[in-house]
């Protein structure tokens, strides 16, 4: 397992994405699937950057591992406010342009591109687990 822990700020997005890119590449992912992994990682991270620490700064840790040779598992840990990203309703993807909400799509993308997404709160830590089958 590899991990990267940095301040939960948008300025660190590129470093996290490079990290997940390298991990997925080492596990044999490429092309469209590799991009989907980056997409899920970005959406989860940006959510944490924006909402996890409303009263100041905190950290976020990303772990990547290949389990059983076929499951690429990304775990994202933060110690911000409890936030079950998965409990939010899906956006209306059929609404007309005037009625389209600006936002709400990120979590929906994670659910759509990943094979499995889980959320848990462990003591004071939010853990989001995103799984891609190789």
């Amino acid at each position: 397992m590899k991990s990267l822990k940095l301040a939960a700020i948008i300025e660190n997005l590129d470093r996290f994405i490079s990290f997940v890119h390298t991990c997925s590449e080492e596990c044999g992912f490429e092309g469209k699937r590799a991009m989907e992994i980056e997409l899920a990682a970005e959406e989860a991270l940006v959510n944490i950057f924006n909402y996890a620490y409303p009263d100041g700064e905190g950290q976020v840790e990303m772990q990547c591992a290949l389990n059983d040779g076929k499951k690429f598992v990304i775990e994202i840990h933060d110690r911000g406010i409890p936030f079950d990203t998965l409990s939010r309703p899906d956006p209306d993807t059929t609404a007309d342009i005037g009625d389209r909400e600006i936002g709400g799509l990120g979590i929906y993308f994670i659910k759509k591109v990943a094979d499995e997404v889980r959320y848990s709160r462990n003591d004071d830590t939010n853990i989001l687990t995103i799984i891609f089958m190789a």
Binding site: M35, E38, L39, E42, E43, V46, I97, G98, R100, I102, G103, L105, G106, F109
Partner: peptide, 16 residues
């Protein structure tokens, strides 16, 4: 090569 929901959001804001 790549677009996320933030990219879509900026396209939507422009379209509006």
């Amino acid at each position: 090569d790549y677009i996320s929901s933030s990219g879509l959001r900026s396209v939507l804001v422009t379209a509006k």
